[in-house]
Write a protein that binds this DNA or RNA. Structure first.
Length: 288
DNA sequence: CCCCAGGTCGTCA
DNA sequence: TGACGACATGGG
């Protein structure tokens, strides 16, 4: 891999395991918009970023050298996937899923954004989740103008204190509005301390996240994986249940035993395994 | 009218 | 613990 900077653009040559389309559409994030097959626009913190693949080269427009750290963190660029893939390639099905999802990269997303996003995700579908989150950003996020267009950062907690159920009504989040308010309140009061959670041992972090109403076991797992990059955490949703039932004979198996089995199979990288399996199941579906 | 969507909550045994 | 229905909203 080779990283260069030119005219406020970041150029990457010869990077393994970074396919922007798969990375942005594998379900871990909700705010990257596809401009074309090979080009996406998104917002990282308060920066608008346009990503484009040109031949074998990936270009991130709008990332200057001073944002290198932000970029490296978000794309978890230090991680080489070869070793992880070797470890989790333990059966034919996941080998197929890994091949199919080659280029998926685990992002490291903002903690507050991930908490709110996955509260919204519960019992909801992806297009609507995206819509709601975008609306939320437009209402309460800082406006950023980029190439003549307006974009919005994810709202900051400080700007959400004292908002009410009525303020959230335009989002049409339904009963989840109370969960969002609870998250804002507990985080603002420090009852759930995000900075401390970042350094907590995984189970302790999960316990703390689950103090928030609307954050159950699965949503907490998503937060642990997609924001804190706890690779060992494997969120199990309806799609994963399908895979586990049809490919791994884990139908009607108790949750606890399922976790034990997953641990045996993919150990410290169960979360990465989940990303491939989830993506494969959703994209390839029955034809697999 | 039904069922489903990256589930969680409250309740009751 | 574990099972079970309710829950807003929108799409098929």
């Amino acid at each position: 891999m080779e990283i260069k900077y030119k005219d406020n653009n970041l150029i990457i040559d010869n990077i393994n395991n970074l396919d922007i389309k798969k990375t942005f559409e594998c379900g871990q994030c909700f705010r990257w918009e596809g401009v074309s097959e090979s080009e996406y626009i998104g917002v990282i913190q308060n920066k608008v970023v346009r990503a484009k693949k040109e031949g074998q080269t990936l270009v991130f427009y709008g990332i200057g050298k001073e944002e290198e750290g932000l970029f490296r963190e978000y794309f978890n660029i230090k991680e080489e996937y070869e070793e992880i893939i070797k470890v989790i390639s333990s059966d034919d099905h996941i080998i197929k899923a890994i091949e199919y999802g080659k280029g998926i990269r685990l992002l490291k997303q903002d903690l507050f954004e991930t908490i709110i996003s996955f509260i919204i995700s519960a019992n909801n579908n992806i297009p609507r989740i995206k819509k709601i989150i975008n609306e939320f950003c437009m209402l309460y996020g800082d406006k950023i103008t980029y190439e003549g267009k307006d974009y919005f950062a994810f709202p900051r907690v400080e700007n959400l204190i004292n908002i009410t159920k009525e303020d959230l009504a335009p989002l049409k989040v339904g009963y989840r509005d109370m969960y969002i308010l609870d998250a804002i309140e507990k985080i603002a009061l420090g009852e759930v301390d995000l900075e401390k959670i970042k350094d907590m041992e995984t189970n302790k972090a999960k316990e703390n996240l689950m103090k928030i109403k609307g954050v159950g076991s699965k949503v907490a797992d998503c937060i642990l994986l997609f924001s804190l990059n706890r690779y060992e955490v494997c969120p199990i949703d309806v799609w994963m249940k399908k895979v586990l039932a049809s490919r791994y004979n884990l139908e009607n198996v108790k949750e606890k035993d399922t976790i034990i089995e997953i641990n045996k199979k993919w150990g410290n990288y169960a979360g990465i395994a989940q990303q491939y399996l989830f993506y494969f199941e959703r994209e390839a579906g029955e034809q697999a």
